[in-house]
Design a protein around this nucleic acid. Structure first.
Lengths: 246, 246
DNA sequence: GTAATTATTATGTCTATACATAATATCTCG
DNA sequence: CGAGATATTATGTATAGACATAATAATTAC
């Protein structure tokens, strides 16, 4: 059980005040993981507000993983206390432009083949699937800032077989030609092998940041890509305020 | 301007159907960046629903950056098309436990000092601030999986001066002792220097993934930490479905 | 005593309405 | 014509009420 006294600060919309007040109770550990927080109806009474307003605050806390809600049982402070960091990965063209630099693109290789074993055994593509394998790099003021290694599912995107990709980056091309419904990312560090070092104009064995992205359209993997950035040239940043949305 | 015909699939709550239908228009590029999407009132009429339901769908699309909303003007497909990657950073103890392994903790060093120049010049801490500097490592079944290098603001957390940190990891201790209101993350790759290599039992110059986290409480930086993982360890980032929340 | 049925309840969704707010468009007056 | 005042409008916030749903608690039947 929990102590009820929520203190609203009078700043901004009511539902944000409620969210902030509850988030503070949680981050200050007055309400601890596993604790049941007051029912919506209780908060309505003590705060003299309508249920929809309280509901909006609680839903957003649940969206961000601070609380867990269970019908009939109530709402509880999440037991696994983790930190959220909503990363926004922009298109490299936009990122270079936002940096005030001139964007450049160079195709390295592009060929059709059967899905390689490392992807079929990882259940990314089915065995025997026709895919296009593209390697290319992206430049800012002529300096390589990203090496891209991508596979495109030809069954899902037949048009990719006829596209040379020598002018248009495959990422942009795909965005124009295929609606996607889901994406998953993994992030890790890799040492630059000689080939990668050459393409990115960095020293062999230099640390690089790699984003691995798998994109689906209706339960079928449309594309699988490795985006490799020189380690010192790229940082992903995310900010999270438990007391506030956005 | 945009074509209005939204097709609901009848699956699940109405506001999710609306969200999905609009997200599909956007990912399929029928509604392109910059396009104005129908007004709430128009959607209400064509879909025969109440405004609050439509509003809930549009708000969540705005939260996820797919659309931008402007009073009086309307709602527009976001111009910078970026991909969201909801990164959840769990406590290392939980992560090791979830992996079915035994968690271990070892303090490497812990001492009080003035905030070093590299942090004061980066405006992370004010000049002359008393801080505690802690270095420690975290193990899974005896194998090092994370090296932690942390500074704690003693003005904000005086109790940290008396804590030896030889049993309790500083992250957990802080969570118990300080409410935080905001956190910012930067993720990048680094090459292991000899000291780091020794602590993580890896080769010198091996690529490592580093999460840099700065945590605030009421406009004051409470702690600044480098979490360095061996590079082969991937940080898994969640899925993002434009057609669905959560 | 245990299994099946029924009642209860907190959250989940939806509606209809109202007023606030900020940005835009229009009007008025010099 | 142009600056300032005024009206308009789409989103933002809040309310009160209704029913759905799923999980729990209580009851009943065997």
């Amino acid at each position: 059980m929990t102590d009820l006294a929520l203190q609203l600060d009078g700043d901004g919309p009511l539902y944000e005040q409620i969210r902030r007040a509850i988030a503070l109770k949680i981050t200050s550990r007055q309400w601890r993981p596993g604790d049941r927080i007051p029912f919506e109806s209780e908060l309505c009474t003590t705060l003299q507000t309508s249920r929809m307003t309280v509901n909006k605050a609680l839903q957003s806390l649940a969206d961000d993983g601070l609380i867990v809600r269970r019908r009939k049982a109530g709402s509880f402070v999440a037991t696994q206390q983790s930190v959220q960091a909503p990363l926004t990965i922009a298109k490299i063209e936009d990122e270079v432009a936002a940096d005030g630099k001139t964007y450049g693109y160079e195709l390295v290789s592009c060929k059709a083949l059967k899905a390689p074993g490392k992807l079929t055994s990882a259940h990314i593509f089915p065995r025997g699937l026709d895919v296009v394998h593209i390697q290319c790099r992206h430049l800012a003021d002529g300096v390589p800032v990203l090496f891209e290694d991508r596979y495109i599912n030809l069954k899902a995107v037949p048009a990719a077989a006829d596209e040379p990709f020598n002018e248009t980056p495959p990422g942009s091309w795909l965005l124009e030609h295929v609606p996607w419904t889901e994406a998953e990312h993994a992030i890790y560090a890799v040492s630059a092998d000689p080939r990668l070092a050459e393409h990115l104009h960095i020293a062999v064995a230099e640390a690089c940041l790699r984003i691995e992205r798998r994109t689906w359209a209706d339960d079928e993997t449309v594309t699988f890509v490795h985006l490799t950035y020189p380690g010192n040239r790229r940082t992903l940043v995310g900010r999270f305020q438990p007391g506030q949305r956005g």
